[in-house]
Design a protein around this nucleic acid. Structure first.
Length: 566
RNA sequence: GCGCCUGUAGCUCAGGGGAUAGAGCAACGGACUUCUAAUCCGUGGGCCGUAGGUUCGAUUCCUACCAGGCGCGCCA
């Protein structure tokens, strides 16, 4: 347990006991006995203390008493002996505000030293098995900027949930089947024949990217017109197989360079080949969730909240994308995941009700599937939106953006806004090596920490290669406002992990990083670490050290590097 | 037409039903003989899209409307 939780427990238990006593004394009605946890919040104003409860306000109605009166009775019976509660006040309409003895803050140093890189891990997930599926871009072309956002949101979310005590698996679903693949084959064929000098257009709804032109030019250069001797179908199947492998490999490389890795790559076509789709349809039929109409098989998704029923097997006998997705999600749950989280682009949000309906039809609680929608990204260059068109293949690729602004800046920009907010990605700002760029602000804090520790070693204050330790150091000397503010922020890291994980809000981690860095910079400017007072120096070095530990934990979660020098 | 997301400072955005709504950037004024000035300190800047409702209390929840984005296939 972290000191933060210990303090919150002290307050909660104290308030609960006070209410108990007041009820026994007949000063508060029985109805006041709380059946849930005492609500605690951090007041906006520092003057209102460290923690505050609105229990008197929320229970006023059931107690049939004025909130302030309830608060006064609770405070009267509140025992604070042996706790970190230093002062209790009633304020405003009936808030009970708790001011803590600042000595609680120095306990955080011990927590961080004890936990090291594990500091902030919490047991929200209790080991539940959970899958995060993200990116899952069609392997028919390069990743673009929109995939980048999903990739970072997914990878940070996975890190976050792991830190919150879930057993997390990251998965990429490879859409290597269906009509689009057929189109892909036609496009490849057209490019091949173009390379041989034939006047063959790429199909209107095909893939027009330059990457395919180059790829097939290579093939033509190497093998000439050999492939024309095959049947159209044979040739296209061969091209598809070859190109999918190439493209998937490119995607893997792009993602790896972006710090995004997966535990499992799942092929859609494997569902067709293994008979999993047929089996899933059979199960749905047995459940009475499938009917036949117009020569096709339909999923009765309206029975589970969708606004229309959906075709799963077409008139021509070919399964739809949804059929494969049903089989895929059945497979996920069969693998024993308690919950699966899909990260989709905003252009797929209309698909959620039918997918949830499908999950329900398969006999699973639809809430076990959580779909996180990531809104679209607008690229901005020189203050103007960068025009992108998928049809003409004029996309800004992820690789280009990383090339232009660097991995760290790109990751930070993709994660710094909440997923459901549209994101303006300002290329000039992300590439700027100036104070306008927030990612450097955070990294600079880490570089400064490293620099101070280097200095301390050079001056012989700490042995070279060692880290400042709290043992024998009087950390109570950390008592200036900037030191306390920094310690408090460090103490809240586990809480931040808990909240961000519970709400699936990885962007909060980016905010925390920025705020922590800001408090360190303030501290750095407010006081000197290396002074001629050995005790004070030792205490501040410990603070610098543990700040560095936490900053690295946070940056690691974000997948952003923590430079020793800048 | 229906559905989802968004609307908060000049710009980009935070804000777990609470108290006097915040941050970064931009603007303005200060701080480098001192551990890295990619930093810090300070100032100004707001009908929280509009109108209702629920609540002791709404930027937060609900409804309607307005504006922007994205969807609404036997495509994926």
């Amino acid at each position: 347990m972290y000191i933060l939780d210990e303090v919150k427990n002290q307050i909660r238990l104290g308030v609960r006991a006070a209410i108990d006593k007041a009820v026994k004394a007949g000063e508060l009605p029985e109805a006041m006995l709380p059946d849930a946890q005492i609500p605690l919040e951090v007041p906006r104003e520092e003057a209102f203390g460290d923690w505050s409860t609105n229990i008197a306000l929320t229970s006023a109605k059931v107690a049939r008493m004025a909130p302030r009166q309830i608060a006064e009775i609770i405070v009267k019976y509140l025992e604070t002996e042996g706790t970190y509660i230093a002062k209790v006040e009633i304020a405003g309409p009936g808030f009970i505000n708790f001011h803590l003895d600042p000595r609680w803050l120095t306990r955080v140093v011990v927590d961080i030293e004890r936990c090291g890189a594990n500091y902030g891990r919490v047991d929200l997930g209790k080991g539940q098995k959970l899958q995060v599926e993200f990116v899952s871009a069609n392997p028919t072309g390069p990743l673009h900027i929109g995939h980048g956002r999903g990739a970072v949101v997914g990878s940070v979310l996975a890190n976050l949930l792991a830190a919150a005590g879930y057993d997390v698996q990251k998965e990429y679903y490879i859409n290597d089947a269906g009509n689009q693949i057929k189109n892909f084959g036609l496009s490849l064929d057209a490019r091949y024949r173009q390379a041989l000098g034939q006047d063959v257009p790429v199909p209107e709804d095909g893939y027009h990217g330059e990457d395919l032109r180059e790829l097939m030019a290579e093939v033509a250069a190497e093998h000439g017109d050999y492939y024309l001797s095959l049947s159209d179908q044979e040739r296209q199947e061969l091209f598809i197989k070859m190109a999918l492998e190439r493209k998937l490999n490119d995607i893997k490389n792009d993602l790896a360079e972006f710090g995004v890795t997966f535990d499992h790559w799942f092929s859609e076509s494997s569902l067709h080949e293994s008979g999993a789709i047929a089996e899933t349809i059979k199960q749905l039929q047995a459940n009475g969730n499938i009917y036949e109409a117009d020569g096709a098989l339909w999923l009765k998704s309206t029975a589970y909240g969708d606004d229309k029923d959906r075709v799963v097997i077409r008139e021509n006998g070919v399964p739809t994308y949804l059929a494969a997705d049903l089989a895929y999600h059945k497979n996920k749950f069969d693998r024993g995941f308690d919950k699966v989280i899909n990260i989709w682009g905003a252009d797929h949000h209309g698909y959620i009700p039918r997918m949830k309906a499908g999950v329900a039809a398969l006999g699973r609680n639809p809430d076990d599937l959580e779909v996180l929608i990531v809104q679209l990204v607008n690229l901005i260059r020189d203050g103007q939106p960068v025009m992108m068109s998928k049809r003409t293949g004029k996309l800004v690729t992820l690789a280009e953006v990383i090339e232009e602004v660097g991995k760290d800046a790109a990751r930070y920009f993709f994660i710094m806004r909440s997923a459901d907010s549209h994101l303006d990605f300002d290329l000039n700002l992300a590439a700027a090596q100036t104070d306008e760029n927030p990612v450097f602000y955070i990294q600079y804090a880490h570089a400064r920490i490293a620099s101070i520790l280097r200095q301390a070693a050079e001056l012989g204050i700490i042995p070279a290669g060692s880290h400042p330790q709290a043992a024998g150091v009087n950390v109570q000397l950390l008592e200036t406002p900037s030191e306390r503010a920094l310690l408090k922020k460090l103490a809240f890291w586990p809480e931040e992990v808990r909240i961000a994980a519970a709400n699936l809000e990885p962007h909060r981690i980016a905010r925390y990083a920025h705020e922590l860095a800001g408090l360190f910079h303030s501290f750095y400017n407010a006081v000197r670490v290396l002074t001629d007072d050995p005790q004070l120096t030792a205490a501040r070095l410990v603070l610098v050290e543990v700040t560095g530990v936490v900053l690295r934990v946070v940056l690691e979660m974000l997948g952003i590097s923590a430079p020793e020098r800048m």
